[in-house]
């Protein structure tokens, strides 16, 4: 017997938002604490030593700047994909979601080039505390990018069939996927200066 989940496409009268939206915000709250704990670890390590390298001396700032622009652009395209659905334009949604996926893949390729360069020089998480926290935080962020790619690719492909039968629910799904993607962008907005520019 199918179980009916209430308020997935209409706002819950108690909260004023759909249960899906409240759910994704609660998930993002837990993500804030996850990355917050790693930022706290970074500060603890940084305060505990005198010889901490400057990010701009040991990491590739131009590549990271490129990735910042790529991720910011993907944030615009994912919110435009949601706006396209609000304007009943599925074709435009697909264009913007494809662009978001393209930007996500470019981000990962650039990151792979960065990692490859470090590994080829014998640099790994075991090299120093700086590289340990650098690889852990950027690696976890990269895993979040991969997670976003999987979800967004599903919503662009087979998941988009929902549009023809439950357009409001599908638009809600895109909004939730977009909120997650913006969070991934937010994390990078802080990672970029803290790791690369200081």
């Amino acid at each position: 017997m199918a179980v009916h989940i209430p308020y997935i496409d209409k706002p819950n009268p108690v909260t004023g938002v759909t249960n899906a939206k409240l759910g994704i915000w609660l998930f993002l709250a837990s993500e804030v604490m996850l990355f917050g704990a790693l930022f706290s670890a970074l500060i603890t390590l940084r305060l505990g030593v005198n010889d901490w390298p400057h990010g701009y001396e040991v990491l590739n700032v131009p590549l990271a700047t490129l990735n910042t622009v790529v991720l910011i652009f993907s944030s615009v395209t994912v919110v435009m994909a949601w706006a396209a659905l609000k304007m009943n334009n599925l074709k435009q949604f697909k264009t913007y979601m494809s662009l978001t996926l393209l930007m996500s893949v470019i981000f990962l390729i650039v990151k792979a080039i960065e990692y490859g360069s470090k590994f080829s020089h014998g640099i790994s998480p075991a090299t120093s505390n700086f590289y340990a926290i650098y690889f852990v935080i950027t690696g976890l962020h990269g895993l979040h990018i991969i997670g976003g790619i999987i979800v967004n690719a599903y919503l662009l492909g087979p998941g988009s069939k929902m549009w023809s039968v439950e357009p409001e629910r599908f638009t809600g799904r895109i909004e939730c996927a977009g909120l997650y993607w913006h969070f991934v962008d937010l994390v990078w907005i802080f990672l970029f200066p803290i790791l690369y520019l200081l």
Binding site: T15, G16, L22, L26, G36, F39
Partner: peptide, 24 residues
Amino acid sequence: EKTAIYLTLGLTAVLFVFLIVIPW
């Protein structure tokens, strides 16, 4: 946004600040 979202994020912000203060 709706109050339910602001309340969720407000509590998160307080706990986040606590996490960042711990190292000091």
